[in-house]
């Protein structure tokens, strides 16, 4: 028997063990997210994918779809909360887009564009964070880290290496490297590892590849995060509720 949920009034089928996020992505419905990647186990930490399920708010990437669920996704209230979360992510780090090699390819920036973010709203933290340029081919700039743990999970689950972890709490939470010196050069990470490429922001970058594509011609300069996230399939069939 086929099972389905309602997302913003649209009937969306799902298979056993799929989350609301899985079902939405399969149905070409965009739910804003940063810490979710379909290749990696969900984490539920960024909270951008918060939806209302039968009147309760929950992370759609970690909530299993259940037959008959009524999910609210694209509402003014939820998008306002998502905007506030995004503004906090910006002001808590050092996100100076004009100086960042990731600009135009950055999912945080693209989500902020999607949500119409014009300013950071809150006072800037300007935290002092350590840059690790020790590795010959991989750069770690914690200024831009949003603690999504995609690199942590990719290294553990996909690369089978456990190179990264998060240490500290609250303001002191930061990305650490599993090596005797704490430096990337002494870790097991290699340039072809998924962990070296999965960062949604400009915290982990491959060296010596700066500005290969000019600013203005990059991924999110040309297409919205909804288009990129949902892929090229059925783009022409997408209806207005995705925007």
């Amino acid at each position: 028997m086929s099972q389905s949920i309602l997302i913003d009034g649209i009937e969306v089928p799902f298979k056993s063990n799929q989350t609301i996020m899985d079902a939405a992505l399969a149905a070409n419905i965009y739910i804003p997210h940063l810490c979710h990647n379909p290749c990696i186990k969900p984490h539920g930490s960024c909270k951008l994918c918060t939806v209302e399920v039968n009147g309760h708010t929950t992370s759609s990437c970690t909530t299993k779809a259940e037959d008959g669920q009524k999910v609210i996704n694209n509402s003014e209230k939820l998008n306002k909360a998502r905007l506030t979360i995004t503004q906090m992510l910006f002001i808590e780090g050092n996100h100076l887009c004009p100086t960042c090699e990731k600009t135009g390819n950055c999912t945080l920036q693209a989500v902020a564009y999607h949500l119409g973010m014009l300013d950071g709203h809150f006072p800037q933290f300007y935290p002092k964070r350590e840059v690790d340029a020790s590795h010959p081919s991989i750069m770690l700039d914690r200024d831009r880290c949003i603690l999504c743990e995609l690199c942590v999970r990719a290294s553990r689950e996909f690369d089978k290496k456990d190179v990264f972890a998060i240490a500290g709490r609250g303001d002191n939470a930061h990305l650490i490297v599993n090596s005797p010196s704490g430096k990337l050069r002494d870790s097991d990470i290699e340039q072809n590892d998924l962990a070296a490429h999965i960062c949604p922001v400009g915290a982990i970058l491959i060296k010596e590849r700066g500005y290969e594509i000019p600013i203005g011609c990059r991924t999110f300069d040309l297409r919205s995060v909804t288009e990129i996230d949902l892929g090229d399939v059925k783009l022409s069939e997408k209806s207005s509720h995705h925007e």
């Binding site: 910006f90 100076l96 887009c97 004009p98 100086t99 014009l118 800037q124 300007y126 002092k128």
Partner: peptide, 18 residues
């Protein structure tokens, strides 16, 4: 109206804040 990155988040001059 705050115009541009520097007015809005400090921009490049704010890199001295570290």
């Amino acid at each position: 109206i705050a115009v541009g990155a520097c007015a809005i988040n400090g921009g490049v001059p704010a890199m001295r804040n570290h």
